Simulated scan of single mutants.
Amino acid sequence: MNRRLEDCMLAAWSGRGGLSTLLLPLSWLYGRLSARRLRAQARGAWKAPVPVVIIGNILVGGTGKTPVTIAICQALKARGWRPGIVSRGYGVAIGPQARLSDGGGDASRLGDEPALIHAATGAPLAVHPRRALAAAALLASHPEVDVLIADDGLQHTALARDLEIIVQDGRGVGNGRLLPAGPLREPPARLAQADWLLTHLAHGETSPTPPPGCAPDARRMIVMRLQPESATHLASGRTLPWADWRAEQGAASCSAAAGIGRPERFFAMLRATGVVLSQTLRIPDHQAIPADALRALPPGPVLITPKDAVKCVRPHDPRLWVVRATPVFSKPGWLDDLDRALRAAASGRTAPPPPGHPPAPGNRRNQPA
């Protein structure tokens, strides 16, 4: 979706105006067809021999799933787990077989977000639109994996899950309507089924209030904010802690470019640390930053996201600096709770049939509402 169309739809989805109301009949149809598809997938869901954590959203557009996936993977590794990642591989033609990171971690092979996750965590990764197929291939190739993290897998119920983490942002549920009259893939009540609801907020944003009955227990509602941790000069690989980069480069006139779901969130994070941006460049999500657009930016450092960096083609523009951010959670102890829940799920696990066979009965995640 190009930025102009996206901006138009976001404006329509911010309220229940004429365009949104006009699209309501299509939303009702979408809701019925989507619910039917999710139920059909869940009836044949494959239950992996290891616990599965699903990270997803019900709101279209970037909500911050990638940094959450990276943070969870790193936290689980620190607690003794050997995680593996499965993802769709958006924008890449995968073919009938799952594609593994063993063959190379380039964005051209895996997709930009999976490539970034693999580079940041070092965890083995498999991509395929059929998440169960990706999970089975990953476990066959990496039998040491003892927990699976499914990036952007909430609406892929063919892979049974033990825990669900829904990520939203400051928009909350928007106007509360399903696509295309609103920004939702599933009804707002879906939030209440999550094991944790993470709200990714930009600088200055406050947490949205979920509709009544549409959120999990308050103890499982977490606020996440990103803060810069370091900056890496893309051409040379030189990395500086963020404070050192600010001391060395921060007084220069800077620009920023981002091809992510919500570029403004990246720009706001930079400005919150005192960086003065002379110009910003918004690129459609998943697209590479055009070279001619970079050349048009004024002289000085150009700050980009890691997701954009994995798509940059050598030789790199010498002005590019990659800003790596770390999430700060309002309740850091939630990761210990996640660890305990996974250990409980792992106990008594038995080997499943291959994907496509009927699942074992009784999995509470096999039948979505």
Rank of each mutant, 00 (worst) to 15 (best):
L281F: 06
D336W: 05
L33F: 05
P124L: 01
T199H: 08
G89I: 02
T326R: 15
D146I: 04
R365H: 15
G204F: 04
I166P: 11
V60K: 06
E248N: 08
P361F: 13
E113P: 08
A288I: 02
A268K: 01
D151C: 05
L24Y: 14
S20R: 12
L178S: 10
G204Q: 07
L198Q: 06
G105F: 00
W196P: 00
A325S: 15
R340G: 11
A257V: 09
P25I: 10
P208Y: 12
R37D: 00
E6R: 14
G182K: 04
L179A: 07
G62P: 07
N363L: 11
I165T: 09
R225W: 06
A126R: 06
P228N: 07
L125I: 00
K311P: 06
W46Q: 07
Q249L: 12
D195Q: 13
V313Y: 02
T273K: 08
L138E: 03
V313T: 13
L281Q: 08
G300K: 03
P315M: 03
D7F: 07
L22H: 05
D7E: 14
P361S: 11
G111E: 05
E6S: 14
P327T: 05
R161Q: 12
C214K: 07
A296L: 00
R271K: 15
P354C: 04
H357R: 14
R319I: 09
L197M: 13
G64T: 12
G356R: 06
A194G: 14
A134Q: 03
R88W: 01
R79M: 05
D292T: 13
Q249M: 14
G62E: 09
I117Y: 04
A137D: 04
E248P: 01
V313C: 09
L277C: 10
P67Y: 05
G237R: 11
R82K: 10
L270H: 01
A160Y: 08
D106W: 04
W28Q: 09
